Simulated assay, not measured.
Amino acid sequence: MTDDIQKALNNCSVGKAVKLSNNGSMNLFLSGPITMPNGVSLIIDKGTVLRAVNNANTFDNGSKNCGTLNGDGKGCKALITFYHVSNGGIYGKGEIDGQGGQILNDKMLSWWDLAQQAKSGSQNQNAPRLIQVESSENIKLYQITLKNAPKFHAVFSRSSGITVWNIKINTPANARNTDGLDFMSSNNVTVASSNISTGDDNIAIKASGGNGSSTDMSFLNNIFGSGHGFSIGSETKDGVYNIYVNGLTMKGTDNGLRIKGDRSQSGEVSNIQYNNVNMSNVKNSIIMDTVYENKSGSTKANWHDVVYNEITVFGQSNIIFNGTNAIAPLKATMTNMHLPDNIMWNIKNTNINK
């Protein structure tokens, strides 16, 4: 069915969309990697599922590493790729299912099994992302449900004008390396009214590798379930600026508001505003950690002008400010904080203005 979907997309006029709809009991479209043409969108109708085929070789990018622990972990194509395109998106109340927990018929293990093997052996698993947006602009995700990604759900790299609105990400907490939304060296981003539960960072913002900074992003009225929280880093070498969060609820998330880095890829992070955030059953509610991993390197963190306002925490939790690897003391402002009496503080090389 991959070829049929790709052919329909290729023949679609700019400004139009290909729609996948159910026909009675026929509501499933199985597909391997597909590429979105310029100016074309994909609609997945309510009750309809676009499902990744559970075969590693189908997603191999020519390296013959997909489905293995060999190489750099980049041996697979994404299920859906936007590359150097403008004005497209994925819409509809249907689902995109990556089948991350299903046994691959050519490997006799699942993508998530492979991720666990990579962890135990300190290696990188070659597994596909659900959606990859690269060097593109004005791309939208609306209403769609993403679930069971083999690896990251949606990655936006070196892209601008991104809108993610009213989507759902629903993947188990034990599915390793299944970030919800990742923004890498991108700008002009809005994520609103979305519900994200996953096995790694719910949202991550990164900037490294000489690809440019990540700037000017708004995150409005979102809900997180399982996951590692709202993260900036760990790669911030190229700078992360002007991040605005307003209206975020986190329930049972491992971490809350987290900025992380180490000596390998730390840089400047500034003008970060967190407003109206409610957390319950969150182990580490606020973290600024410059020693996220014990990696070698010569970079130092320069994190300042970070504002926490109207933050409410329910239940036992930790607040960690670790500026050990900072070029100067970390600088944060905290106002209208509603914290439990037994909250644990751990502060190193940090100036907090209250």
Results as ranks from 00 to 15, higher is better:
residue 314 F to A: 02
residue 327 I to N: 12
residue 331 K to V: 04
residue 317 S to G: 10
residue 323 G to M: 13
residue 334 M to Q: 05
residue 311 I to L: 09
residue 330 L to G: 07
residue 333 T to H: 08
residue 324 T to C: 09
residue 348 K to A: 13
residue 341 D to V: 15
residue 342 N to W: 00
residue 333 T to Q: 05
residue 325 N to T: 05
residue 321 F to K: 09
residue 320 I to W: 01
residue 344 M to L: 06
residue 332 A to K: 00
residue 342 N to C: 08
residue 334 M to E: 04
residue 319 I to P: 03
residue 334 M to R: 09
residue 327 I to R: 11
residue 348 K to P: 00
residue 343 I to M: 09
residue 327 I to M: 10
residue 338 H to C: 09
residue 318 N to T: 06
residue 335 T to S: 05
residue 333 T to K: 13
residue 340 P to T: 10
residue 342 N to T: 15
residue 325 N to P: 06
residue 348 K to W: 03
residue 351 N to Q: 14
residue 313 V to G: 00
residue 327 I to Y: 01
residue 341 D to P: 11
residue 345 W to C: 02
residue 336 N to R: 11
residue 312 T to A: 03
residue 312 T to N: 07
residue 332 A to S: 06
residue 315 G to D: 02
residue 320 I to P: 04
residue 331 K to T: 05
residue 329 P to A: 08
residue 349 N to I: 13
residue 315 G to N: 07
residue 316 Q to R: 10
residue 336 N to I: 04
residue 323 G to T: 12
residue 339 L to W: 02
residue 340 P to K: 03
residue 343 I to H: 02
residue 338 H to M: 14
residue 313 V to C: 00
residue 335 T to N: 10
residue 326 A to F: 04
residue 351 N to V: 15
residue 333 T to Y: 12
residue 313 V to K: 01
residue 338 H to E: 11
residue 322 N to P: 05
residue 314 F to H: 12
residue 332 A to G: 04
residue 334 M to Y: 03
residue 336 N to T: 03
residue 325 N to Y: 03
residue 330 L to H: 10
residue 332 A to R: 00
residue 350 T to H: 05
residue 323 G to L: 07
residue 329 P to R: 02
residue 316 Q to E: 06
residue 325 N to F: 06
residue 341 D to A: 15
residue 350 T to G: 04
residue 343 I to C: 08
residue 320 I to E: 05
residue 349 N to H: 15
residue 323 G to C: 14
residue 335 T to M: 03
residue 346 N to P: 01
residue 317 S to N: 12
residue 333 T to G: 01
residue 325 N to C: 07
residue 327 I to D: 08
residue 340 P to C: 11
residue 339 L to C: 02
residue 312 T to V: 08
residue 322 N to R: 08
residue 326 A to W: 01
residue 347 I to F: 08
residue 318 N to Y: 10
residue 342 N to E: 14
residue 324 T to V: 15
residue 333 T to P: 01
residue 328 A to Q: 14
residue 312 T to E: 05
residue 317 S to H: 07
residue 322 N to H: 04
residue 337 M to E: 08
residue 336 N to M: 03
residue 330 L to C: 09
residue 321 F to G: 05
residue 315 G to F: 09
residue 334 M to S: 05
residue 348 K to S: 14
residue 348 K to I: 14
residue 311 I to S: 00
residue 342 N to S: 14
residue 322 N to K: 09
residue 345 W to L: 13
residue 319 I to F: 08
residue 337 M to I: 15
residue 312 T to G: 01
residue 350 T to P: 03
residue 336 N to C: 03
residue 319 I to E: 06
residue 347 I to V: 15
residue 337 M to G: 01
residue 316 Q to S: 11
residue 351 N to R: 14
residue 330 L to K: 12
residue 331 K to C: 04
residue 325 N to K: 10
